[in-house]
Design a protein around this nucleic acid. Sequence first.
DNA 1: AATGAATGAGGATTCATTCAT
DNA 2: TATGAATGAATCCTCATTCAT
Lengths: 210, 210, 210, 210
Amino acid sequence: MDTKEHIMQVSMLLFSEKGFETTTMRDIASKADVNLALINYHFGSKEGLLKNIFQQRALNIQFHIWEIANNKSIDELEKIHQIIEHYVAKMFTNQEFHKVMLRELFSSEREEVHADTIAIFSENANIIIEIIKQGIKKKIFNKVDPELCFATIIGTIHHLMLSKLLRENIYGGKEKKDPILDPSFQKRVTNHIKQIIENHLIPPLKIKSI
Amino acid sequence: MDTKEHIMQVSMLLFSEKGFETTTMRDIASKADVNLALINYHFGSKEGLLKNIFQQRALNIQFHIWEIANNKSIDELEKIHQIIEHYVAKMFTNQEFHKVMLRELFSSEREEVHADTIAIFSENANIIIEIIKQGIKKKIFNKVDPELCFATIIGTIHHLMLSKLLRENIYGGKEKKDPILDPSFQKRVTNHIKQIIENHLIPPLKIKSI
Amino acid sequence: MDTKEHIMQVSMLLFSEKGFETTTMRDIASKADVNLALINYHFGSKEGLLKNIFQQRALNIQFHIWEIANNKSIDELEKIHQIIEHYVAKMFTNQEFHKVMLRELFSSEREEVHADTIAIFSENANIIIEIIKQGIKKKIFNKVDPELCFATIIGTIHHLMLSKLLRENIYGGKEKKDPILDPSFQKRVTNHIKQIIENHLIPPLKIKSI
Amino acid sequence: MDTKEHIMQVSMLLFSEKGFETTTMRDIASKADVNLALINYHFGSKEGLLKNIFQQRALNIQFHIWEIANNKSIDELEKIHQIIEHYVAKMFTNQEFHKVMLRELFSSEREEVHADTIAIFSENANIIIEIIKQGIKKKIFNKVDPELCFATIIGTIHHLMLSKLLRENIYGGKEKKDPILDPSFQKRVTNHIKQIIENHLIPPLKIKSI
DNA sequence: AATGAATGAGGATTCATTCAT
DNA sequence: TATGAATGAATCCTCATTCAT
């Protein structure tokens, strides 16, 4: 269905901009230029629409993380690096969807969607946490706090998704321009996270002697 | 006015639990056990109520950060440490208010409130960023990315405020118990952020030679 | 058309269970397992479907009453008896249709259908009323109220069609079981109406002794 | 509340004319000349309005029947006569309410209301049935079918409530005028039911001999 | 300061129906 | 004959707000 996909695109945009409750069915219908009743025809309800959006997208995020984790030809540090790169890239290119997802992670209003989102999210978290634990076991990594390392990685990225105005003010430089679409900003963020995590994980130069 | 304060307390709780749009005036009136019309009488409107909550609370956060920044008897690293400690403590003890604030940081629906929140937030951000820049200038710190260091500090903390269910799943240990009220968790978080930031700011090779 | 007939059967069942307005086209389509648009294709509209159901069924009820009325080999009392028997039998075996009919008799919403139903019904009423008048004229019957005798006959039967729950409560005995499908209940009802009407129509003093 | 009572009056009229589902909240609001939202304010929902109407009225019907049943100074036949008189009078003067009630007796859509109505109705039925059983035991009455005697009494009355058009056609005489407001018709109905029931209950052959 | 009643705008959803194929 | 998509009108209800007291 072309129309169905179109409605999902439009509503994802609106949900990401205005939030779920603030976006009305009329908003969606008018922006997508379809009949109001058609949305209910295709998705059953407003919440059904949201669930549909999630089902379609949520899984493929998970898949790539899993692939990285199971790549036997790279070590734990490289895995973490690749995951960071992947996460940042996904968030920056799929902003709308990830804003919607972040909203549902935050808000527990739509219980079912909330629980589902948390479930997917937790699985990814555990993959990353396990990699770190493995690195510690192998003594490649310091004895860090694996869960909170995850919190730092994902928290840093999420923080940058919070608000356009915030990005303009803090990360937009002198011109206060939203850097989200600037590819060099994406690189800057990736590097920062990689380095701060590496500096924390890897023992800082133990045997520097003559 | 005792009643006024009572309404603000109750509504802050509700806003933090259910979000601003989902919380109705009737919810507030019934939970606060006051007449519906009285809320409008005191605060003018629902949004007026929100603004009132912010005005009352937002400033004193700012004040303490500013105080730390201007404490001439401590160096930049110590300033960063104290700020991290302060932030974590505030967030954990004032959960409700900070959830509401985080929501308004995220959502741009109520433009004025959003802008005000961002403004306050940005000021705090700049204070911290300036400290880091100062540290770099003094060559106490590495040449890190000051803005993104702030993103990491605040992002890590905010991530832990996102959702009770998330905390239970990822940070709740085997019993999956929300650790937010556990004082040792607060300590754990503080230490993690302090260390990860320190490892990143301070040149790894300090005295490691003969 | 097999499909057409099938749709009518299914919709009659639904109309009798839930009423006309409460039954939706979707209900019918899904229960009959046909496409929604097909119903409109065949019957023009929801009301068209109802009319079709009536046209198909209503006439043959009338016919039999008329036949009994014109049977010259039986007297008026016997005619009344046969009509009672016929009515009760029809109502009990064709419950669904008669519930729909009773509904339309009661509700004047769909004016045309209501008027048609009343028209058919009134004709039958008049046939019965005429028989009673004839009996009075012939002095076989007492000087009763012919119209209200009809009201009693038909009212008693209709009362038993009102509600399953009512039948269970009042006529279901100790086990509160709906007696409508029990053939002995049908006999009991027939006998009761026959007797009460006979006791009223026929002069009580039959065996004048010395 | 005067307004509340007014809304109930108006909606009872509309429900009796058009039925519950066909009557819209807008119909009620406009006919009662009140704001649409006010109805929900007072009654919570459309069904709440219906329930309110029932609660207010249903009980006092029951009370009078019970009083008659427990009057020790009159015999069973007199009790039946008084009940018939009472029922007919109530139905004719409170047409609207009784039409609404009859509708809910018939329709099982609003389950709770249906069950409540049946419950009240069944209680009244049992009072009457018990009187008849008592009469049979005392050998004042014939061995009739007590439940179906009740069906006849109430069925005859209900039949006359079914439809204005029906009354005009069958009971309206030559001018086809709805006799419901004609007091002589009420008397005629009362007498008919009294007689037909008496003829059935009381042994026909009393002392008719020399 | 406080209240119960009332309001108007707007919410999601459901409905019978129609269209294009 | 049959269908999936689409439509417009109408449904009940909820909301923040205001009014009179």
